[in-house]
């Protein structure tokens, strides 16, 4: 009986010992994925920024500018791309909608971001764009990979359509969550005009004819939960200028926007709550289950060996000899 029990325990011990690395290195990369149907919104605000008035072409201080950022997973598009990409792909249709304190549209920039559901590596496919311009992203955007490392990453800047390093600047505590702080500086760069301008008569083409160009610089800050790779908070110190051309008259440049953009308080709280709930699922696959299985496997193995040793104790009758009866001769 003891021998049978020790064999069963041994089977369970091997099962647990095998499950530990399988969960961490086989199941985790295949199960931890951004769902293709994800829908997420965030509201960011810039208080007292400088904003251009396209009517007078002069910059002025305004009470508030609000940025509404929506990410919407396009399941049909991701399934179509997955057929040729041979991996799980997420397609995010995004919109950054900017409005002033009176609710008037300042700009709206649509994007399509296509990436690997687990690694966040960009996937290049037809439809990848920023504001209607086809792009070929390098690096990450919006989200870091699962199990973010303490190192610099390449981050895509949608305004400038360029990829630059975003630097790891240290570990911090953000509202009870251990986060990695990243910062990226995009130096003054010439960028295209948005396709949708706030004034009907002004178009990117009409602006280009005047010889005026648009320039942009930003300092981008992200506080990222390293387990899920999700930013729990973000800020941006951004400046936009129009430079040169006949449109500005005798002026060299005019500020289009200058302000410090921060996530709205209620969205910070909801993002922190969401990240806290999601990180448990990732930790389950990367830590809780692998370590749990390993410890359980070791315990079961020890118990199995102990039972086996007891069953072989000197002086104990051999189990087979004691229980197997002598065969009786068959009588015809």
């Amino acid at each position: 009986m003891r021998r049978k029990a020790s064999l069963v325990l041994l089977a369970f011990a091997v099962f647990c010992a095998a499950m530990s690395p399988l969960m961490r290195w086989y199941a985790f990369p295949r199960l931890a994925k951004i769902p293709p149907s994800q829908y997420q919104e965030a509201v960011l605000e810039a208080k007292n920024p400088t904003l251009i008035d396209y009517g007078t072409m002069k910059a002025k201080k305004v009470p508030m500018v609000t940025i509404v950022q929506t990410l919407k997973g396009n399941v049909e598009a991701s399934e179509k791309i997955e057929k040729s990409a041979d991996r799980d792909v997420v397609v995010w249709d995004a919109l950054s909608y900017v409005q002033d304190a009176e609710g008037k549209m300042v700009s709206k920039i649509p994007e399509r971001y296509i990436f690997d559901a687990h690694s966040q590596e960009p996937v290049h496919a037809t439809g990848e764009m920023v504001d209607g311009d086809p792009v070929k992203r390098e690096g990450i955007e919006f989200k870091w990979p699962f199990l973010t490392e303490k190192r610099d990453y390449e981050y895509f800047d949608a305004q400038a359509r360029i990829t630059r390093p975003i630097h790891y600047k240290g570990t911090q505590d953000f509202r009870g969550v251990k986060v990695y702080y990243f910062e990226q500086t995009i130096p003054w760069t010439k960028v295209p005009f948005p396709r949708t301008m706030p004034v009907k008569d002004i178009t990117p083409e009409s602006l280009a004819k005047t010889g005026t160009t648009r320039w942009y610089t930003t300092i981008r800050k992200f506080w990222v939960d390293p387990t899920t790779g999700a930013p729990v908070y973000g800020e941006e110190i951004q400046r936009n200028e129009l430079r040169g051309g006949t449109l500005l008259g005798d002026r060299d440049k005019v500020t289009v926007f200058a302000g410090h953009v921060k996530m709205r308080e209620d969205y910070i709280q909801s993002t922190v709550d969401l990240v806290k709930s999601q990180r448990v699922l990732v930790l389950l696959l990367t830590s809780y289950l692998p370590w749990g299985f390993l410890v359980l496997g070791a315990l079961l193995l020890a118990l199995s060996l102990w039972l086996e040793a007891r069953s072989r104790r000197p002086g104990d009758p051999a189990p087979s000899a004691a229980k197997d009866p002598e065969p009786e001769p068959v009588k015809a």
């Binding site: 969960m23 199960l31 994925k33 769902p35 149907s37 929506t70 396009n74 399941v75 919109l95 709280q269």
Partner: peptide, 27 residues
């Protein structure tokens, strides 16, 4: 483990919610 990973998670459906052009009151 092979069964669990082969089954995977369901893809779900594209959300019917629009890309926002108004400021939502609360998340």
């Amino acid at each position: 483990v092979l069964t669990i990973t082969a089954v995977g998670a369901p893809s779900g459906e594209t959300s019917p919610k629009p890309l926002l052009t108004t400021v939502p009151k609360h998340p």
